[in-house]
Nucleic acid binder design. Structure first.
Lengths: 232, 232
DNA sequence: GGCCCGAACTTACCTTGTACGATATTGCGC
DNA sequence: GCGCAATATCGTACAAGGTAAGTTCGGGCC
């Protein structure tokens, strides 16, 4: 009765958890995370939705797996870094590591949201953090300070931030008139937006999270930690 | 034909966008954000799912509205604060404001996730940021520095952070044995966890975001900004 | 050949968002 | 009070998506 792909066609590479997860990343890369449905994923693999359940427990499991794949990509990237980290060099080492991890997220703009919604940590992520702690220890951090540092960095440690604030791509347009309208309600905000002219309309990750701002915040924290390290 | 609540029973307070949104917050407070469905929401209001659509455009609109309600709650809370903010006092003023906002999120643990997924900013949130900028200006911040500051704070400006790292509530139990098992794979992490003993198992918001760690990170950033303000 | 079993597939169910049109209710000029 | 338009609510129904259960297929082993 000739199923969709006939019984006697080419053998078709078998599914596997790994293949499923990689396909999931591909689908998300192409159509965004909301396009990732079990049916779409199956289609990508030339299979049926229910066949996936032989390799993953449920959709949550796919999301968990995706985090692992991305974290693996990050670990691979940072693993190639070889710079000194002893003493004062810790800061540059951590900085480079984080910015390298960030590169991966820039390739997968949907990934931050997935990372944030995961409740149990993947081994690959834990591994990443372990190495980061190692660098801090090299710099003379106490375990206590390293712990605080991880919390202080939060998602920034992995290379992304979630911005609460998006000055709506204030590109000329009609927004100038809009600013006038809001000026009395929001004097400080409008004053600020008017002045900063928003002259960097490129490279955003999520909402207004451009490279310059990311590095500003990162350096602010790293500098603060460095001071604590020295006075300890 | 006696509808669910009979045609002649007590008049039932009419729906309204505001009532719908408040009910939505209530449902989320009681059952978590995933329990918030249009049917459940209607039930809470003693109405039918489709009736809600007269007052809100779609579910996304409900989520947007929820953000407004919570932000309103925050604005109300911080509005009662009256402390000096000129010059060096800016830091204490901002600090208090943020920690006050945080109190609201501690009452609605599901809210951070909703805030993060909103793409267009609510007026109430913008208003909150405007006031925050005002405080920084009082402290002598340039508009440029205030802008950087907002990005550096990110969601912390509103009172919450998203932690990427959850040391699994390392309360004694079996986790001690687990630590031994991981010790060689993750030497730095295990060493850290062993030492910090994790002696504060209370007051978490989201993942391991306890008050102490929040304040540590917040102060780290505020102190850094304060230094920049002075040297400017 | 008959049997077992892993892998993939088929069907079908349930939840959830929401379009559409019918119905009920309210406010208001007379 | 009365009728009628505006306002508000409801009932029905469908589509998308996750997934439970049972079924089929093919290849290795006796």
């Amino acid at each position: 009765m000739a199923t969709r792909n006939g019984p006697r066609t080419e053998p078709r590479t078998p599914l596997s958890r790994d293949r499923v997860l990689r396909a999931a990343v591909k689908v998300a890369d192409e159509g965004g995370i909301e396009s990732l449905t079990m049916r779409r994923l199956a289609e990508e693999l030339g299979a049926e939705a229910m066949s996936l359940y032989y390799h993953v427990a449920k959709k949550e499991d796919v999301l968990d797996g995706i985090v692992g794949v991305i974290a693996g990509e990050i670990n691979e990237a940072v693993g190639r870094i070889d710079v000194p980290s002893q003493g004062a060099a810790w800061k540059a080492a951590v900085r480079q590591r984080i910015l390298t991890a960030r590169q991966v997220f820039l390739r997968h703009p949907w990934a931050p949201r997935v990372f944030e919604t995961r409740t149990d940590v993947s081994p690959a992520v834990v591994q990443y953090f372990d190495a980061l702690i190692g660098l801090m220890r090299d710099g003379g951090f106490s375990n206590d300070l390293a712990h605080h540092a991880l919390h202080a960095l939060g998602s920034r440690a992995l290379g992304f931030t979630q911005e609460m604030f998006d000055p709506g791509d204030g590109t000329g347009d009609e927004s100038a008139a809009m600013l006038d309208a809001m000026a009395e309600q929001l004097p400080h905000l409008v004053g600020m937006l008017r002045e900063i002219a928003h002259d960097d309309p490129d490279s955003t990750l999520g909402w207004c999270d451009d490279q310059t701002e990311f590095e500003f915040g990162l350096d602010l924290i790293l500098d603060g930690l460095d001071r604590m390290r020295e006075t300890a």
